[in-house]
Amino acid sequence: EDEVKKIVKRLIENGVDDEQIKEIVKRQGVDERIVDKVLKELK
């Protein structure tokens, strides 16, 4: 989960929008619920 957080944070800093972040992270095989949780925490 910490790995996911790092990735998502980097994507947000690069101006990637939420939908794209979800797609990218899902392609890495991460559960969507984890992605949603991380996005909420970082906003």
Rank of each mutant, 00 (worst) to 15 (best):
E1C: 06
E1D: 09
E1V: 13
E1N: 10
E1G: 07
E1I: 15
E1K: 08
E1Y: 14
E1A: 09
E1H: 12
E1Q: 09
E1M: 14
D2F: 08
D2G: 08
D2M: 10
D2N: 10
D2I: 10
D2W: 08
D2Q: 11
D2E: 14
D2P: 08
D2L: 10
E3L: 12
E3W: 15
E3H: 12
E3T: 09
E3V: 12
E3P: 07
E3I: 13
E3R: 10
E3D: 10
V4K: 01
V4M: 06
V4Q: 01
V4W: 08
V4L: 10
V4S: 01
V4P: 01
V4A: 06
V4R: 01
K5Q: 06
K5H: 08
K5W: 03
K5S: 06
K5L: 07
K5G: 04
K5C: 06
K5N: 05
K5T: 08
K5E: 06
K6F: 03
K6S: 12
K6V: 12
K6T: 12
K6W: 03
K6N: 12
K6A: 15
K6Y: 02
K6C: 06
K6I: 12
K6E: 14
I7A: 08
I7V: 10
I7T: 10
I7Q: 09
I7D: 03
I7G: 02
I7E: 08
I7F: 03
I7N: 05
I7H: 07
V8L: 06
V8I: 14
V8R: 00
V8P: 00
V8M: 07
V8C: 04
V8S: 01
V8Q: 00
V8E: 00
K9M: 09
K9V: 09
K9H: 09
K9I: 12
K9A: 11
K9P: 00
K9W: 02
K9R: 14
K9C: 05
K9N: 07
K9E: 09
R10E: 14
R10K: 15
R10G: 10
R10A: 15
R10F: 09
R10H: 13
R10Q: 14
R10C: 07
L11G: 01
L11K: 00
L11H: 04
L11V: 00
L11P: 00
L11A: 02
L11W: 02
L11N: 01
L11I: 01
L11Y: 05
L11E: 01
I12G: 02
I12P: 00
I12C: 03
I12A: 06
I12H: 14
I12V: 09
I12T: 05
I12D: 00
I12Q: 11
I12W: 15
I12S: 05
I12M: 14
I12N: 02
E13S: 09
E13N: 09
E13H: 09
N14E: 14
N14C: 06
N14D: 15
N14I: 15
N14L: 15
G15Q: 06
G15I: 02
G15N: 08
G15M: 07
G15W: 04
G15K: 06
V16Y: 15
V16I: 14
V16F: 15
V16E: 07
V16M: 15
V16Q: 08
V16A: 10
V16K: 11
V16G: 03
V16D: 05
V16S: 08
V16W: 14
D17R: 12
D17W: 06
D17N: 12
D17F: 07
D17K: 13
D17E: 12
D17A: 14
D18G: 08
D18E: 13
D18F: 15
D18Y: 13
D18L: 12
D18S: 11
D18I: 15
D18T: 12
D18M: 12
D18H: 10
E19P: 07
E19L: 11
E19G: 09
E19F: 09
E19D: 13
E19S: 10
E19M: 12
E19Y: 10
E19H: 09
Q20H: 13
Q20G: 11
Q20K: 13
Q20L: 13
Q20C: 02
Q20F: 09
Q20M: 14
Q20I: 11
Q20S: 13
I21E: 00
I21V: 07
I21G: 00
I21R: 00
I21L: 06
I21M: 03
I21A: 03
K22I: 13
K22M: 13
K22Q: 06
K22L: 12
K22G: 04
K22E: 03
E23S: 10
E23M: 07
E23R: 11
E23G: 08
E23N: 11
E23K: 10
E23D: 10
E23C: 05
E23L: 06
I24V: 08
I24M: 09
I24K: 05
I24Q: 07
I24S: 04
I24D: 03
I24E: 06
I24W: 02
I24F: 03
I24R: 06
I24Y: 03
I24H: 06
V25R: 00
V25D: 00
V25F: 14
V25H: 02
V25K: 01
V25P: 00
V25G: 03
K26E: 06
K26N: 07
K26R: 13
K26V: 15
K26D: 02
R27C: 06
R27T: 09
R27V: 08
R27E: 09
R27S: 14
R27A: 15
R27H: 11
R27P: 03
R27Q: 13
R27G: 12
Q28K: 11
Q28M: 15
Q28N: 10
Q28L: 15
Q28V: 11
Q28Y: 10
Q28W: 08
Q28C: 07
Q28T: 14
Q28A: 13
Q28D: 09
Q28H: 13
Q28G: 10
G29P: 02
G29L: 05
G29Y: 03
G29Q: 04
G29E: 03
G29C: 04
G29F: 05
G29N: 07
G29V: 04
G29K: 04
V30Y: 15
V30I: 14
V30H: 13
V30F: 14
V30A: 08
V30T: 06
V30E: 02
V30M: 12
D31F: 03
D31V: 06
D31S: 11
D31R: 05
D31K: 06
D31T: 07
D31Y: 02
D31H: 09
D31Q: 08
D31G: 05
E32V: 13
E32F: 04
E32I: 13
E32P: 14
E32D: 11
E32Y: 04
E32S: 12
R33W: 13
R33K: 13
R33Q: 14
R33S: 14
R33V: 11
R33C: 06
R33A: 15
R33E: 11
R33F: 12
R33G: 11
R33P: 05
R33T: 13
R33H: 13
R33D: 11
I34Q: 06
I34F: 07
I34N: 03
I34C: 03
I34K: 05
I34L: 14
I34M: 14
I34D: 05
I34S: 05
I34A: 06
I34R: 05
I34G: 02
V35C: 03
V35Y: 05
V35E: 00
V35G: 01
V35K: 00
V35R: 01
V35P: 00
V35S: 02
V35W: 03
D36I: 11
D36G: 03
D36H: 04
D36V: 08
D36R: 04
D36W: 01
D36A: 07
D36E: 15
K37F: 04
K37V: 05
K37E: 08
K37I: 07
K37Y: 03
K37A: 09
K37Q: 09
K37S: 07
K37G: 05
K37H: 08
V38T: 04
V38Y: 07
V38A: 08
V38G: 00
V38N: 01
V38Q: 02
V38I: 15
V38F: 06
V38E: 01
L39R: 03
L39V: 04
L39F: 04
L39T: 03
L39Q: 01
L39C: 02
L39G: 00
L39M: 08
K40A: 15
K40F: 04
K40T: 14
K40N: 14
K40V: 10
K40E: 15
K40C: 05
K40M: 12
K40P: 07
K40W: 05
K40H: 15
E41R: 02
E41F: 02
E41W: 03
E41P: 00
E41T: 03
E41S: 04
E41Q: 07
E41M: 03
E41Y: 03
E41N: 05
E41C: 04
E41K: 03
L42A: 10
L42P: 02
L42S: 07
L42Y: 03
L42T: 07
L42K: 03
L42M: 09
L42W: 01
L42I: 15
K43G: 15
K43N: 11
K43D: 15
K43Q: 14
K43W: 07
K43T: 09
K43I: 10
K43L: 13
K43H: 14
K43S: 13
